[in-house]
């Protein structure tokens, strides 16, 4: 399905076309994923540079880069195959695989953003440590607890994605859901993901404001 570019500019809700278009959909997903990944790589590199003096970490770069690229190619390329395996046709073949892929990447963006905020927190802690020179503010146990909490939270996010969509598909197959019912379930997941984004983004804003104040005062 291919639509002239002028259509996107004149129709108020062209996101529907982006969603249904064969080329624009993967392009938008790849663009957003790549930007999140670049941000994470640079934040991590900066943090390691400050913490240990060594910024470059080729293993992380290659492993995370390969993982992101494989997910993009595998999931975006495998949509049609997925629709065939699920035995979908008509609107179902168009909507269901794309919704699952879009939500998966939304979950990935949430995870990447949470990791970025994690590094913002680490920067903030380093600045605070230098701010209160001579005062013991480093707390390895607290840092470890935070790390576990983050790992648990992000794993739970992936589990939630898996369980929710597995259950949706199960219900869809067993009860022959209508498009309206399916759409309501998909919208609810987007609301859940949106709430997650709002929480971590406000945490990031608070940390950045505090970090900026500390940096500004110290730099004079």
């Amino acid at each position: 399905m291919s639509i002239p570019i002028a259509t996107y500019l004149t129709v108020p809700n062209w996101i529907v076309f982006v969603f249904l278009d064969r080329w624009l959909f993967p392009l938008v997903v790849a663009y957003l994923t790549a930007l999140y990944w670049i941000s994470l790589v640079y934040l991590r590199r900066g943090f390691l540079h400050l913490k240990t003096g060594r910024g470059s970490e080729p293993v992380f770069l290659w492993v995370s880069g390969t993982l992101v690229a494989s997910l993009l190619v595998g999931l975006l390329g495998g949509q049609t195959l997925g629709a065939q395996r699920l035995g979908l046709g008509g609107w179902e073949a168009q909507l269901i695989p794309k919704s699952l892929v879009w939500h998966f990447f939304m979950t990935c963006w949430f995870i990447l953003e949470a990791l970025c905020v994690w590094y913002v927190l680490q920067f903030h802690d380093l600045l605070q440590l230098s701010w209160r020179a001579g005062v013991q503010v480093a707390a390895p146990r607290r840092d470890r607890a935070r790390g576990w909490l983050l790992a648990l939270g992000l794993s739970a996010t992936l589990v939630l994605y898996g369980c929710y969509h597995y259950q949706t598909l199960l219900v869809f197959k067993q009860s022959h859901l209508s498009g309206v019912h399916f759409l309501a379930l998909m919208r609810f997941y987007r609301l859940l993901a949106g709430m997650g984004f709002i929480v971590i983004e406000w945490v990031a804003v608070v940390l950045l404001v505090r970090g900026y104040r500390m940096l500004k005062r110290r730099a004079g």
């Binding site: 380093l126 230098s130 020179a133 730099a219």
Partner: peptide, 8 residues
């Protein structure tokens, strides 16, 4: 930041 944090 390195100038400020380097000591820690």
């Amino acid at each position: 930041m390195e100038r400020l944090v380097g000591k820690t």
